[in-house]
């Protein structure tokens, strides 16, 4: 296909001619340039939007900055090490994989950095540096690289890697408490909800004073990132709003208590998952209606796992499951071409 489309950027072999200046007697030739080189010809369009893959990924990194800073404030130097190790090793492993496979090196698109950072924010601070490195290796090489690299993976690399790590290492499931605040000995909210209310206030929950993965707690920081992504038009509101909204409604219907419901949605990785993982371009539907279906599916599975499953949290699993359904959702919501008539 590339051969067929590569008609672009070739210099047309016509004789470089044209002395524009001094040709028309009525115009002053002084300012005119002489064209002494051939022209580029290509089929339209001749202008392009400024957006690039790299700029989109950079925007995601900027949107993750508040959550990253919050994670370091909440969980200290361990969080910082985890963030640095995961991000750097994700970029390194992508580079090494592409080098070994003799592919074009595209770490400059920053997608590996996004994957590494997202993975780190999805892990608790008890994860060791070498475990973080293995996680990055799984994410960028096994889940992404082996399926063909950026745009070709069917599952979210960070989420899939987190799930594999959860099965492999006991430390990943641990609910480590923040190093600041005075609630260090409290139980994880999701483990006791909805039977008992956590010791934290809703305000404390909102700024992340509770145990869990380093990046999931500070809802305020995550929302800041969400607003940034919306303003920059990197993502649309559909997935996060519908996902969190549906979880809210379902939880409320199941327990009938507004306070418990608010604790439920502020707990676990719901905001991190809904804003940053369920909006990944490659592994989620492209059309708005598809995004809504995807988000509702995620919410149903999340609530089901939280309520009736053996696990305290279901965000990662729900997103992974819906990733697999994405091609079918895409097909399902395909729009009819404007003015198109059906063939017999």
């Amino acid at each position: 296909m590339l051969d067929k489309t590569k008609q672009t950027n070739e210099i047309h072999q016509s004789e470089p001619d044209v002395q524009i200046a001094s040709h028309s007697a009525d115009t002053k030739p002084t300012d005119a340039y002489q064209v002494d080189h051939p022209f580029y010809v290509s089929s339209s369009p001749h202008i392009f939007s400024k957006s690039t893959t790299q700029k989109i990924m950079l925007d995601v990194l900027i949107a993750l900055l508040p959550a990253t800073i919050a994670s370091i404030v909440l969980f200290g130097y361990k969080a910082l090490i985890l963030v640095l190790v995961c991000t750097a090793s994700a970029v390194f492993f992508e580079w090494a994989f592409q080098k070994i496979c003799k592919q074009k090196i595209v770490i400059g698109d920053l997608s590996a950095a996004v994957t590494g950072l997202l993975l780190a924010l999805n892990l608790p601070s008890s994860v060791t540096w070498w475990q973080g490195m293995i996680g990055s290796l799984i994410a960028v090489v096994v889940v992404k690289g082996l399926f063909g690299g950026i745009g070709k993976n069917f599952a979210n690399p960070a989420i899939t890697s987190r799930i594999i790590m959860l099965l492999a290492f006991g430390t990943v499931g641990a609910s480590v408490q923040p190093v600041i605040g005075d609630i260090t000995s409290s139980a994880t909210p999701l483990a006791i909800l909805p039977a008992k209310l956590p010791v934290q206030t809703l305000g404390e929950m909102f700024i992340g004073l509770r145990g869990g993965a380093i990046g999931e707690g500070c809802i305020a920081a995550l929302l800041l990132g969400f607003i940034y992504l919306l303003v920059r038009k990197v993502i649309t509101w559909h997935t996060p709003v519908v996902y969190i909204g549906t979880v809210f409604v379902l939880s409320f219907l199941l327990n009938g208590d507004l306070e418990i419901t608010l604790y439920e949605i502020l707990s676990g990785g719901l905001f991190l998952g809904a804003i940053f993982m369920a909006t990944d371009y490659t592994t989620t539907p492209s059309r708005p209606l598809g995004k809504v279906i995807f988000a509702v599916g995620c919410a149903l599975i999340t609530v089901a796992i939280r309520r009736w499953g053996n696990l305290p949290e279901g965000v990662s699993y729900s997103i992974l499951f819906m990733n697999i359904l994405t091609p079918y959702i895409d097909k399902w919501v395909e729009k009819k071409p404007f003015g198109g008539v059906k063939h017999e």
Binding site: F39, Y40, S44, P45, H46, I47
Partner: peptide, 19 residues
């Protein structure tokens, strides 16, 4: 010095080989 000259607008215009 021009390197690309076209008929029409930049979205659907046709690049020309010379002047």
């Amino acid at each position: 010095s021009p390197y690309k000259v076209m008929y029409g607008g930049p979205m659907m215009g046709i690049a020309v080989p010379n002047l």
